[in-house]
Design a protein around this nucleic acid. Sequence first.
DNA 1: TTGTAGGCGTTATCAT
DNA 2: ATGATAACGCCTACAA
Lengths: 331, 331
Amino acid sequence: MPDKMTIDDIAEALGVSKTTVSRAISGKGRISAATTARIRDYIEQHNYKPNVVARGLAQQRTYNIGVVCPMDYEIFDLPFFHRCLHGISEVTAAAGYDILLSMLEAQGHRNLQRIVEHRKVDGVVLTRTLLHDPVAEYLKRSGLPFVVIGSSPDPELVQIDNDHRNACCELTSILLGKGMRKLALVGKDDHQIITETRRKGFEAAFVRAGLTADPALIYLRADNEHAVLTILEDALARGAEGIVCMDERIATMMLAACREKGVRVPEDVRLASFYNSQALDHSSPAITAVDVDDRKIGFTAARTLLELIEGREPGSQFLKNYKIILRESTM
Amino acid sequence: MPDKMTIDDIAEALGVSKTTVSRAISGKGRISAATTARIRDYIEQHNYKPNVVARGLAQQRTYNIGVVCPMDYEIFDLPFFHRCLHGISEVTAAAGYDILLSMLEAQGHRNLQRIVEHRKVDGVVLTRTLLHDPVAEYLKRSGLPFVVIGSSPDPELVQIDNDHRNACCELTSILLGKGMRKLALVGKDDHQIITETRRKGFEAAFVRAGLTADPALIYLRADNEHAVLTILEDALARGAEGIVCMDERIATMMLAACREKGVRVPEDVRLASFYNSQALDHSSPAITAVDVDDRKIGFTAARTLLELIEGREPGSQFLKNYKIILRESTM
DNA sequence: TTGTAGGCGTTATCAT
DNA sequence: ATGATAACGCCTACAA
């Protein structure tokens, strides 16, 4: 049962003023080591926990950060969000903050709005960014410190992201290094920033190898199974030796399409993916992929947000926390 | 930019006391309709939002509920958690509450403890229950209102769960109705409450049909791919005509095992699962499964928790919100 | 119907 | 080095 002890109780019990107790706790202001120790001991002994709400009222802070979770996440995105949250949680816990979750509805961002207007958070992590993101716009207007996970053309946003361009460039380079010359690139949505970023990395690898990527082999609208099947047929007809998929979802669908068409992987065509997951590891054949440390993204985002809240001015960060996992599909 | 307007500002601007304003907002206490309207108008006009922290301090409430999320969720469990959270969010948003997330670490529940000791929540939803759950025990001791999702033998806990027993009974009945007599049941962990519940439902279906389930065909330790493969061999050797898997993870592994062994589904053996997902729908063949409305579970849990917080005494609830989706694997 | 004053638990300011 | 006192923004007896 949580004791309802207050700072006054301690002050009275120890015969000091509550100001002194407050100072002993926060460590601010001049105070003798002796009384500090005495007070800290008492607190320890009686398991006193300060009332964070009251402190918040006095300091105009909540010790909460908001995390915005898009509701339209597909099943494939969830592990990312979960691991990301894990990273955020580590940082916030260590800093004495907690996480207020804001589920984003399709209609708008009323949940986020409530949190912001009610001043229930000191800052916000936006776990996904769109090209013209109304949520980011709203947060900007609100004046609240916030960081976004993902990249944005808006230089005013503090962005935390992986260096997807380099990651994709390296993966592509590896395939080129295996002697393949005709590689297809398959993405889901040409409106997404990340799709463009990955395409650039893909092309950069060709340039680095003194080659040129065939534009006809770049497919950016693989948004369903049928599209993927059609793309496979087209790519093979054009002589593609390898297919690079932008995420595990596409990779999984592509593998299924190959199976359906009787195309053998890796004998007839090699397969690689830009985002790793259990699914790719467990599939047969296992699929080569870029593995990103999602936890670290969350970790960094939270860390950066806290700095922002503390008044410092951290910049955007593009992490190199990926590694390429070679599997059967590119043997 | 959030205005820093306070209740005093409004009082001054309107030439009334802040008590009056407070009453107009809360609707408590006698107050003339005229002034109420005047105040409400002013609030609307100037987009005033009360400071929830201050209100919390005065009322000893936070208008937050804690949601405990186990960190060891596997990828297969995430959609459940996400949909569940969605349901919770609907209820809390409508009631003016927000969600404070507590990620459960392997080592303990320090995150939860912080939230509870700091009095940052008015209640807690525990999204999973174990047989002897230290987290549930802790919450009990804390005296904070809380509900658990899932079933527990502890009658003191307010539990929200699906009626898994009946769901499993019905699924099994359907298979029996198709003329099969030898059915295997495959579960992951015989320590989990739900495993036992499902086994009971499975057996009940046999009893209802005037039959008896073969104990040798009940496997409750299918915790990895190898185990599943072994179980498949054993079950077939014992003449199993159908296999009922306790969750989609097992079902997926079982299907892979069948493929590996050259066992055709549904020709050689039928397959069904107790928990539906995209994975089961997209696999080939698609797998018959019990489909549960996770969102509703979260919805009900949150609703019940709020009642508990309001001082009422709602009981446990076992929802019948499942349906059985027949697919190719049991044709 | 409305206003006054005190309290919620903490921090911050200014004395001492 | 320590204390008294006033914020912080809202709620709520109790008074008027």
